[in-house]
Design a protein around this nucleic acid. Structure first.
Lengths: 217, 217
DNA sequence: ACTTGACTAGAATATGATTCTAAAATAAAA
DNA sequence: TTTTATTTTAGAATCATATTCTAGTCAAGT
């Protein structure tokens, strides 16, 4: 009955080739500095082929974004599902994020340096959907932790800002080569600091702080 | 002697008109979605005139960015020059940033939603210079505070991430209409949290925390 | 008044995104 | 296998828009 599904074998492959060719250029030079000709020559696909798979350059950019953000979010959500304690949870999230950036530099450059780019917001409601679902899971985790008295009772948007903000800012510095502190130390420092800014009563829970850091800078 | 400055009267005015026309569009729709024709018609300047004052669209975008960031940075630096205590300093910076965003929404949309955009990094070394100078002042302030024992001894890039990150992340939410918490409360929450993540020994310095927040969210 | 260089105007050009037409490849039907 | 329908690819044609070019206008100094 589903005779309408006459998918060709190599089609997905070709689409993926285009996405990855685009990623390379977008990540290295940004979307606006990348021409369709660049993508065409790197992917060895024709104009027609590209426009068959993607509605426009903007749409291609969005699909590349989606492909990356899906992988990233899946990783974070797996962590939160593991139901560790609050402090471990925070550390795990920070570590995951920074290591992911370190190991997927090309993706990270595109995803996070262009995070606020305009083409995302307007078009592509799937991005909105992904973000909403993601936020929902994250806030559920938070609520659970808060009920156990691990976190203080902060508004969700503030909590998100406090956690995500430092990670993103360090990421930005790291990607632009301006970070002095290495990733491992950054994970330790940031998660430690976050814990103290989020938890109900930092000192009584753990007597020590500043687990490690050399005398740099 | 300065005969080379055969400035025409209205020239600066015209240039400024172009910048502000561009700002409106850039802020509302982003640089790539704005055409030179848009800017031309809003500023009532001709193509030739625009290209006389600015090398290219990219350069125009950079100059708009510069104009905004200068004002913003000047405000922050004034605060840091006032040599208040560490905690007051943090609060003042957070408050300044968020109120500035609230009062200069148009500028903020452009400056901060496009902060990581590519055209800034590559071209326009004046932006680099501004940022370097700014960072230098900020780090000097930090070093002074740290010597007085107010802050713990964190690497500069980490400190910057911890402070700037939450402000920027909240800003992003605020500008995209996703913030739940109001600006005043956000200032209180964020600066309180920052203090606990940065200071040497939060509890002994001030016994209380969470100065204010309603039971929202 | 005249010369000079900054400034403005708008047409011409160039670059690059998108559309269009047709053909090749593939899968399903006969 | 041959036929038919559908998807996918190709590349030329088109269209949108950023930039350049040529010719002027204007303000100030001589």
């Amino acid at each position: 009955m589903n005779r309408r599904k006459g998918r060709h074998a190599g089609s997905e492959v070709r689409k993926s080739e285009i996405i990855h060719a685009a990623l390379e250029h977008f990540s290295a030079s940004g979307v606006s500095q990348t021409s369709m000709a660049d993508i065409r020559s790197r992917s060895r696909a024709s104009t027609g082929s590209i426009y068959h798979h993607f509605k426009s350059k903007e749409n291609l950019a969005a699909e590349v974004f989606l492909e990356g953000i899906r992988v990233y979010q899946k990783g974070i959500l797996r962590l939160l599902g593991e139901e560790t304690g609050a402090r471990e949870g925070i550390h795990a999230v920070v570590a995951f994020h920074l290591k992911w950036v370190q190991e997927h530099t090309t993706w990270a450059r595109y995803l996070f340096q262009h995070r606020y780019a305009s083409f995302m917001a307007s078009t592509e409601e799937e991005i909105t959907r992904l973000n909403r679902d993601f936020l929902q899971h994250v806030s559920a985790w938070f609520e659970r932790q808060r009920r156990q008295g691990s976190f203080r009772d902060l508004p969700l948007d503030i909590s998100v800002s406090l956690i995500l903000g430092p990670c993103m800012e360090y990421t930005r510095q790291y990607l632009s080569g301006q970070a002095i502190t290495g990733v491992d130390q950054a994970i330790a420092e940031i998660s430690d600091a976050l814990w103290h800014s989020l938890c109900e009563d930092p000192v009584s829970v753990t007597g020590h702080r500043a687990l490690s850091h050399g005398g740099d800078r």
